Simulated scan of single mutants.
Amino acid sequence: AYQDLAKHDLSSLRYFVAFSRADAIEAHLGVKAANLYGITEGLVLISHPDDPPRARHTTQGRPGYTAEEIRILKAGTDEEAAPGEVGELCFRGPSSLRGYYSAPGQTREALTADGFVRTGDLARAHRIEGRLYYSFEGRLKDNINRGGEKFGTEEVENFIRQHPAVADVAVVAMPDEMLIERACAYLVARPGMKAPDVRSLAAFLEKLGLAKFKFPERIELLESFPVTRVGKLDKARLRETIAEKLAREKNAAA
């Protein structure tokens, strides 16, 4: 919690919107707060100030425009999930993505047959006091959603692998109360070489032309990566590890 809150005049503040923890923000500030969801492909979910606390605090809200259509589809299909079931959040509306320029293959992957945008995010529909609201339930793809800007981890990994001191890399999403997720890079250093820190890696990636919002904001060093029973990189375990470590650090600082 912000310790110097009493030093500021918040008398004009009526409503506070964040990506998560609206309940804690509302309790701390003493004004109504809500979670939201937004992506650059054209969808914003948000609760209104007069919506019930359960909607504002436990979901990301409802479409900001009445013309937006929402579907929750079974992962990898065009089949709608059962009511209340977790599935891929898909949407269609006046401002939604229509396709990628000169990239028909990407367009087919991004849209359903009838033009709904596949977000790659898992969601659940909730009917609260007669209205449908949607809660974020996780990631379907190996992407990172940094404050609504989504990017693939594979692209970032390919850039980092060009660093002379990096033998291997795995980039995963780590939870963040303000931005939903940030990028964490697990690195294995080459023998006899020192792995880069966050600042030097950022300078290296900037020279290569990677967009700054994709830069890893934390680095964890390992001697080797965990693998699944079939020998594949276990990114789920890496995500769990960094989430648990962040929680321990937060508790220790409280």
Results as ranks from 00 to 15, higher is better:
Phe16Ile: 13
Phe16Cys: 04
Val17Ile: 12
Ala18Leu: 09
Phe19Arg: 15
Ser20Lys: 04
Arg21Lys: 02
Asp23Met: 09
Ala24Tyr: 09
Ile25Cys: 06
Glu26His: 02
His28Pro: 07
Gly30Ser: 07
Gly30Val: 15
Val31Ser: 15
Lys32Leu: 01
Ala33Leu: 03
Ala34Gly: 06
Ala34Val: 11
Asn35Cys: 03
Ile39Gly: 10
Ile39Tyr: 15
Gly42Trp: 00
Val44Phe: 00
Val44Asp: 00
Leu45Pro: 04
Ile46Glu: 12
Ile46Tyr: 09
Ile46Trp: 13
Ile46Leu: 04
His48Asn: 09
Pro53Ala: 08
Pro53Phe: 03
Arg54Pro: 07
Ala55Gln: 07
Arg56Trp: 08
Thr58Gly: 09
Thr58Cys: 02
Thr59Asp: 14
Thr59Ile: 15
Gln60Ser: 03
Gly61Cys: 08
Pro63Gln: 00
Pro63Val: 00
Pro63Cys: 00
Gly64Lys: 06
Thr66Leu: 09
Ala67Gln: 07
Glu68Tyr: 11
Glu69Ser: 14
Ile70Thr: 05
Ile70Ala: 15
Arg71Tyr: 13
Ile72Val: 08
Ile72Ser: 06
Ile72Phe: 10
Leu73His: 07
Lys74Phe: 01
Lys74His: 11
Thr77Pro: 08
Glu79Pro: 10
Glu79Ile: 06
Glu80Trp: 08
Ala82His: 11
Pro83Trp: 04
Gly84Tyr: 11
Glu85Leu: 06
Leu89Pro: 00
Cys90Met: 13
Cys90Phe: 03
Cys90Asn: 07
Pro94Met: 06
Ser95Met: 03
Ser96Tyr: 15
Ser96Gln: 07
Leu97Phe: 03
Leu97Thr: 15
Arg98His: 06
Arg98Ile: 11
Arg98Gln: 12
Gly99Glu: 15
Gly99His: 09
Tyr100Cys: 10
Tyr101Glu: 14
Ser102Met: 03
Pro104Gly: 15
Pro104Trp: 15
Gln106Lys: 09
Arg108Leu: 05
Asp114Arg: 02
Gly115Glu: 15
Arg118Asn: 01
Arg118Leu: 04
Gly120Lys: 00
Gly120Met: 04
Leu122Gln: 01
Arg124Val: 03
Arg124Gln: 06
Ala125Gly: 14
Arg127His: 04
Arg127Asn: 12
Ile128Phe: 08
Ile128Trp: 03
Glu129Trp: 05
Gly130Cys: 13
Arg131Glu: 06
Arg131Ala: 05
Tyr133Met: 02
Tyr133His: 15
Tyr134Ser: 10
Phe136Ala: 10
Phe136His: 04
Glu137Gln: 13
Glu137Pro: 13
Gly138His: 01
Gly138Val: 14
Arg139Cys: 14
Arg139Phe: 14
Leu140Cys: 02
Leu140Arg: 05
Leu140Met: 08
Lys141Arg: 03
Asp142Ala: 13
Ile144Pro: 15
Asn145His: 02
Asn145Pro: 05
Arg146Pro: 14
Gly148Ile: 00
Gly148Ser: 04
Glu149Ile: 14
Glu149Lys: 01
Lys150Arg: 10
Gly152Gln: 12
Glu154Ala: 15
Glu154Asn: 09
